[in-house]
Design a protein around this nucleic acid. Structure first.
Length: 1088
RNA sequence: GGGCGAUUAGCUCAGUUGGUUAGAGCGCCACGCUUACAACGUGGAUGUCGGGGGUUCGAGUCCCUCAUCGCCCA
């Protein structure tokens, strides 16, 4: 706590000092630690775990600021608050980053390191970034319970993952299926749809002829197909023609006609032309297509060139009569649409022609094997040309999918995948939202959630990666030479092997609680919950390799898998083992689980599940989830279904979706675009409080947040707007001083020289709002502290109503109202409303009026004590209300205030606590709310405004005293006369007269107000022309207003239909405005 | 192609169930360093509320439509 007396406080708030001092203080006091056994009502939030791929950006700052605001308010409201922190392992993203670096820095691939080696490297990376991320959160002021920090890949989460996978497996909700996946041939893994981006590139459209086998006379001898990927023809299993081309043409014509009717004249021309072309095409193509359709129905085959295979001509609606030749080649293993055709025509089969690395496999003729797609393409085209089957080559733009991670083109690839059946799980998560056990705010996002879940698409959970939770399944590996052979394994063999395996494991001391055995027509699979079973399987494998001797008691061969040597039922076990191993060795599944699998469990896994911990009991379900809209489906939906599945209870009753932060061009911020902003840069420049307040101020319901970004020149501090061009330059030259500086781009893309330049931080001027506000608060506090040196409460324990002046009662009324507004806004996630209410109150009401007025009062001995009491109380309340958004500044001031005014409160003064962080949240003092007082005060403000306005209009220097009088009624006199000192101190104006009969002086500037008229004596500054101009302008405005109201009231329908109150209001307004108009007219008249 | 959202002052955004002269911050203009604060004070200017149509006594707000932009899904 500061030793310096308040008068020596700097005139600018030093955010850096406050941040260091108070964060340490809070941690040391243990304010952020939640007690699972507390009697207080619980409030808990799990952090959306930032992934350890990189440092936090502004989006994270927003996300965590909002959580912290809620946590801090709830803590002050007396809740037992747990904010569970942690990070996410982010499977593919992290592995890709580490692999890329490995290649760049050491020229090594993951295969050079091997699985363990690579995973070790990733753990190192994780350690580094986790530290950085948690540090960033602390700098931001986040009040997380750090003792409970988790990681999605730590032991506790691993237990939860294994338990869940096992449960799903045992529940028959896990299966293996063949699906087309987005195959990244560089990383050699499947990537999900959301890890793919599309790019239009220049390509070609090749037209090939496939010969018809034994055509009848009159039938075509060739079928023409076209493709953008000629090499895939080696995997064709059919060619399709539309089953009813005539109907298809008709349907198109009808649609086109409807369009033409609705179209504008301009579009009509084009559409008409289109319709004509369609008709011509129909006439030309239809007979041929109908012949082909007939051939397809007859079962005609085609020769698939280059392969020696024949493939069927089939009927399927995927063939579009209006496009190309009307026929389409079908490659089910390498095209999503063709895959669908296969699902409708299973007899055609599917042939995978790719190896995992993107080269062609043994399913294609020998000459193409081992070629890359690119080489194979050239070869196929050449061979087709030689065979005389190449018809033509068109140029064409192609929408090509690329992997987000490796930036290489994606190959659709038919692969065995692990799936989670979603039908029931998805339904449960939908029900939870439709019956409002989970509410999503803003409500419109409910649709996103429900739409996605309603598709009930099975969840592919396996990833061909090394970084992640390895799937806890062992395969009993038979290497079938072909799928045919695999299919011929008699089921009895599986049954027998399964029974034997079960016997073995039971003999080894395990139960069905620990493992589960399933088989399909190729594999026997063992899913293991208890990791000790892994050891038993390892022992079995040893046996398989070395015979029974290898695992005999007393001959311990391997300390890591000694299970067979110790099991009591060794004999039974070994007999069983003999049976099982006839089948083959057990191999642990190589794949790991999708990152979202562990994230889905986050709300309960972090609390200790599957153990029944006190934390789980106290804090589950959590209170609310706060996240960004792009992971509603990937994460929120899955948490809900996983929570219901494992806990039988939703993970949170409410979800708040906050906006995304975009740059000045409306683009999402990202490292790869170079437009990201590091919150630490903003914190350095503006302070954590400013960042937090600025973010809260921007968090509105409807829109994403646009944040123009600037570089700050490290030499002269000039701000240079970031553009699409300069954001990816490693060095930028300052507009102002001309000196070069390095950008964030330099770190990843710059030369050593660029990197050596001083770094220009990327920041945004938007945060000046927060900084200015903080500084205003700081200075208002400083003023209060300076004037509270002789503050005492003991002489005057309770303030009574008589002690209070109008301004006190006004301030207290406003304070109570604002307390209610802020509380309600935060509790309903209206962060911007809360920030704006506080900003307006603190600046325009507390500072601009109450503090200003108190200056005059502090100077008057008999008014001083009351003013101090109210001032201390108001500041105290304001600090509490602001603390969630502006934690450091409020804590700093709280302590300073505590030194001069330790006991605060209007009645029953209480000693302020050790920290505002755990001070009680203000409650609304209903008795203070007085709308009449607020209206009266507004009247005072209006008169003050009029006087100030006239001074400025007349160009009267601020320090020149002026005189004014006010024509008003008796009631207003009673109100305004006591305020005379304030007109003197705040407007340099002395009142000369009040009342209904006030006559303005000869040379006057007048301003009509509601029911009043303000006259400022300007004899010393008289300028007829200027005054006339001013009044004429005012008259014109009023005339317009009168006209508009008269227009309304003259409208019979308005008077008849509008509510009486509205009509009456208009009538009153008219009289009022007409009065003002006349006042101006007469003032103008006087000017002559 | 389907869904959601946005379009309001030069910029970034508010605008409650329709109610009558549309607000804030920054920026701009004028005047001011008055011992809390120039990161400030006082005053001021600034909008055919994306275009078009409709409902209504009355539309920034409700409906239709078009345009542009963004996101999600295919």
């Amino acid at each position: 706590m500061s030793d310096s007396p308040p008068t020596e406080l700097p005139s600018h708030y030093d955010h850096q000092a406050a941040q260091e001092k108070w964060y340490t203080f809070w941690e040391q006091q243990g304010f952020f630690h939640a007690d699972a056994n507390s009697k207080k009502p619980p409030f808990s939030i799990v952090i959306p775990p930032p992934n350890v791929t990189g440092a936090l950006h502004l989006g994270h700052a927003l996300n965590n600021t909002l959580q912290d605001i809620l946590c801090r308010m709830k803590r002050m409201q007396g809740f037992n608050v747990l904010w569970m922190p942690g990070t996410d392992h982010a499977g593919i993203a992290t592995q890709a980053v580490v692999e890329r670096r490995l290649l760049e820095e050491e020229g090594k691939s993951r295969h050079d390191l091997g699985r363990e080696g690579l995973v070790d490297r990733i753990w190192e990376w994780k350690a580094q970034y986790e530290k950085r991320i948690l540090g960033q959160l602390k700098q931001l002021g986040c009040s997380c319970d750090w003792e409970r920090t988790r990681f999605t890949l730590d032991d506790q989460c691993a237990r939860a993952v294994r338990e869940t996978f096992f449960k799903l497996f045992a529940d028959n909700k896990i299966y293996r299926g063949k699906r087309l996946v987005n195959w990244d041939t560089y990383l050699q893994t499947a990537v999900s749809d959301d890890e793919v981006f599309h790019e239009v590139t220049k390509g070609h459209f090749w037209h090939f002829n496939y010969p018809v086998v034994d055509p009848k006379p009159g039938e075509p001898t060739h079928v023409t197909i076209a493709t953008t990927r000629p090499e895939t023809m080696l995997g064709d299993t059919a060619v399709a023609v539309h089953p009813d081309p005539a109907a298809a043409f008709d349907k198109l014509s009808t649609e086109l006609r409807e369009k033409i009717i609705a179209a504008s004249a301009k579009e009509k021309g084009e559409l008409d032309e289109e319709a004509t072309l369609l008709l011509e095409r129909r006439a030309k193509m239809l007979p041929q297509l109908e012949i082909l359709r007939g051939m397809a129905l007859r079962g005609v085959k085609l020769e698939l060139p280059l392969t020696g295979r024949t493939i069927p001509l089939i009927c399927d609606e995927w063939a579009k009569p209006e496009l190309g030749s009307g026929c389409v080649k079908i490659t089910p293993a390498h095209d999503e649409n063709d895959y669908q055709v296969w699902q409708r025509n299973l007899e055609i089969g599917a042939i995978n022609i790719l190896n995992r690395d993107g080269t062609l496999n043994d399913s294609v003729p020998e000459k193409y094997r081992g070629l890359t797609m690119k080489k194979a393409r050239a070869a196929v085209v050449e061979d087709m040309e030689t065979a005389g089957l190449l018809v033509e080559i068109e140029d064409r733009e192609i929408d090509l999918a690329h992997s987000d991670r490796s930036k290489t083109p994606i190959e659709p690839y038919l692969a065995d995948q692990w799936f989670v059946k979603m039908d029931e799980l998805a339904q449960s998560a939908m029900d939870a939202v439709t019956d409002e056990r989970v509410k999503i705010f803003p409500e419109r996002y409910t649709k996103t959630y429900l739409d996605w879940l309603s598709e009930k698409r099975d969840w592919p959970v396996g990833r061909q990666l090394w970084w992640g939770h390895r799937i806890p399944v062992w395969h009993n590996l038979v290497e079938p030479k072909s799928e045919l052979e695999a299919c011929n394994i008699p089921e009895e063999m599986f049954v027998e092997a399964r029974d034997q395996l079960r016997l073995y494991l039971v003999a080894a001391g395990f139960s069905e609680e620990d493992f589960r055995i399933e088989f399909d027509d190729v594999y026997m699979r063992l899913c293991i919950k208890n990791p000790k079973v892994d050891d038993a399987i390892n022992a079995l494998n040893k046996y398989f390799q070395g015979g029974l001797d290898a695992v005999k008691p007393g001959r311990v061969h391997d300390a890591s898998s000694p299970i067979l040597t110790f099991v009591p039922g060794f004999k039974a076990a070994s007999d069983a083992a003999k049976q099982i191993t006839r089948f083959g060795k057990f191999v642990r599944e190589e794949e790991v689980l999708d990152t979202w699998f562990s994230s889905a469990l986050w709300p309960h896994s972090t609390l200790g599940w599957p153990n029944e911990t006190p934390e789980l009991k106290t804090f589950y379900p959590t209170s609310v989830l706060i996240t960004s809209r792009d992971i509603i489906t990937l994460w929120v939906a899955r948490m809900v279904l996983a929570g219901l599945y494992n806990m039988d209870e939703v993970p949170f009753p409410e979800v708040f979706i906050h906006p995304k932060i975009l740059d000045g061009y409306g683009e999402t911020m990202s490292k790869s675009k170079g437009n990201g902003v590091d919150p630490l840069d903003v914190i350095d420049k503006f302070g954590a409080d400013s960042l937090r307040f600025g973010l809260a101020y921007l968090t509105t319901e409807t829109q994403d947040v646009r944040l123009p970004v600037e570089f700050e020149c490290p030499h002269c501090q000039a701000l240079i707007p970031q553009t699409k061009k300069n954001r990816t330059l490693p060095r930028v030259e300052c507009d102002k001083c001309g000196k070069p500086f390095g950008t964030q781009w330099a770190q990843s893309h710059g030369s050593a020289e660029d990197q050596a330049l001083p770094r220009g931080a990327a920041v945004s001027e938007r945060f000046e709002l927060g900084r200015n506000f903080c500084n205003k608060l700081w200075n208002a506090s400083r003023f209060a502290l300076m004037n509270l040196a002789d503050y005492k409460t003991s002489a005057n324990g309770n303030l009574v109503a008589d002690d209070l002046l109008l301004e006190d009662r006004w301030l207290l009324s406003r304070l109570a109202t604002v307390t209610g507004e802020v509380t309600a806004a935060l509790e309903s996630y209206h962060f911007a409303d809360a920030a704006r209410a506080l900003y307006g109150f603190a600046w325009d009401e507390f500072c601009s009026f109450y503090v200003e007025m108190s200056k005059a009062r502090f100077a008057v001995a008999e008014q001083r004590a009351t003013a101090q009491r109210v001032m201390a109380y108001a500041l105290d309340t304001l600090l509490r209300l602001l603390h969630p958004m502006v934690p450091f500044l409020t804590e700093e001031v709280w302590h300073l205030l505590g030194e001069v005014a330790p006991e605060r409160g209007l009645t029953d003064p209480q000693t302020a606590g050790e920290s505002v962080c755990v001070a009680q949240w203000p409650t609304v003092k209903e008795t203070c709310i007085d709308k009449a007082i607020e209206a009266q005060f507004a009247q005072f403000q209006t008169v003050m405004g009029a006087v100030r306005n006239i001074r400025q209009e007349k160009n009267i220097p601020p320090r020149t005293p002026i005189k004014f009088s006010v024509r008003c009624d008796e009631e207003a006199i009673a109100l305004l006369q006591p305020m005379e000192p304030y007109f003197a101190s705040m407007a340099g104006a002395t009142a000369t007269d009040w009342g209904p009969k006030v006559t303005p002086p000869e040379r006057v500037a007048s301003k009509p107000l509601e029911g009043m008229e303000v006259h400022v004596d300007i004899s010393e500054f008289f300028d007829v022309a200027a005054e006339r101009t001013r009044l004429e302008k005012e008259r014109d405005q009023l005339a317009k207003f009168v006209q508009s109201i008269e227009g309304n009231l003259g409208n019979e329908n308005f008077v008849k239909n509008a509510p009486a109150a509205v009509v009456e209001q208009q009538r009153e307004k008219l009289i009022e405005v007409q009065g003002q108009f006349q006042a101006v007219e007469s003032a103008l008249g006087k000017l002559g």
